[in-house]
Design a protein around this nucleic acid. Structure first.
Lengths: 225, 225
DNA sequence: CAATACATACCGACCGTTGGTATGTATTTA
DNA sequence: TAAATACATACCAACGGTCGGTATGTATTG
């Protein structure tokens, strides 16, 4: 009958909406207050009528919610990475370039940055993100591309797994202004060092477009604080 | 009268012994069970008679204990770094080399490795270590040395602060077998990539002694598990 | 050299909050 | 209509932390 409208419904016909609601609320609170200072009760209070039973019906623990939240955060990125991986018109090096460019473009117009959170006092969230980076992003997306580049001759490297890890670590964590609360200048310097490192590894993938996107991104983040 | 002997004393004349006892017990438990799965009661149970009042007399919170623990963990390293920093017979590059060598030598005979802990499911401990690395180790010890090297001509670089951060991050976290549960081979590969990165940055400081120490260290760690 | 005054070290009962569970009930679906 | 789903509610043990109190030290003073 009145399934849409946001009114207090005894039961949602589309449980995925409830799951998403919980995830959205949890995301926001985890960012604002930090994971360990967000209680289940906090989440319930922002759920608009739903109760603890709803949460523990869809998630088995608070930690489980955290994993789902970070999963959702990296989901879009990983999807985009997959699309680039599957392209056949690019060699390895070109794919890497494309990934960096796309990552930055996406971040510029991303919701996350309008909230201006900080992972700095959020060990669990940061850790979960680190986990995603090392266990999924690096081995599933970056490493295969490096290996393709080694095969097609566009990339010269020796230890693709470790190289993929290091690059992912630098790009996703070290250079992420949400993790390290850097000024525009500091982020720029990091990017210059990053560029130099990649060049030293035979990966000359940082062009002017990537660089200008990077500066734009940092400025946005700074202004939103 | 009987101030020494370990017997249950109503009051310890040397309170620092009590503080150290708490720190030692907490260290062990944090490593074994993880920070968030170690309760204050757990610590009390291993204190041999001391109570909750004792803990909260010396520390203002559980978090405070964590910070004291990581402080103690990096204290020795930092002291050694300071000594090397103060030497006048070495140029910047030589100091960096010495620091890496000494770090590895120290780790080989270190207590920590005999416990075979893992930071992997220990977000808070890992984070606290990251904090020490970025906020203290890098800016206070590595960065000044790089700047000295830039001044005396032994190091060619452009962004000493960021360079120091990146090097510290790689050395203290990424290549730390306690953080990432790598095999001997993987650690070796990481070290090779690390070496290549440093060479690309104009820092050719990894020699054969450092390399063999690294392998020794990883083997010790693997066997102790 | 006591008596006094205060600081330190520690005890353990107690408190509010927490993450989590057990059970009940209304609604959907097969 | 029976089973499965989507919740609500009442409840629990354990947690981090506080607090009033006590015993033991040291510093001051007459």
């Amino acid at each position: 009958m009145f399934e849409k409208g946001g009114e207090k419904l005894a039961r949602n016909k589309h449980p995925e909406e409830t799951v998403n609601l919980i995830l959205d609320v949890a995301s926001r609170l985890f960012m604002e207050k930090g994971y360990e200072h967000t209680s289940i009760q906090d989440i319930i209070n922002h759920l608009g009528g739903l109760s603890k039973g709803a949460i523990y019906h869809h998630f088995k623990s608070k930690e489980d919610i955290l994993y789902a939240v970070t999963d959702k955060m990296t989901e879009q990125s990983n999807q985009m990475f997959q699309v680039i991986c599957d392209r056949t018109d690019l060699n390895g090096k070109e794919k890497l370039e494309t990934m960096f460019r796309e990552s930055l473009n996406r971040s510029v117009q991303d919701d996350i940055f309008t909230v201006a959170p900080s992972f700095y006092n959020n060990p669990q969230l940061l850790f979960s993100l680190l986990h995603e980076t090392i266990e999924i992003s690096a081995p599933d997306y970056i490493q295969p591309i490096i290996e393709q580049g080694m095969a097609d001759g566009s990339i010269v490297a020796k230890h693709p797994k470790q190289l993929a890890e290091l690059i992912s670590l630098m790009a996703n964590l070290w250079m992420n202004p949400m993790v390290f609360d850097d000024s525009v200048e500091e982020t720029y310097s990091k990017f210059m060092v990053f560029d130099q490192v990649l060049k030293g590894l035979g990966l000359d993938i940082v062009d002017e477009e990537i660089l200008s996107r990077m500066q734009e991104l940092t400025t946005i983040y700074q202004n939103s604080k």
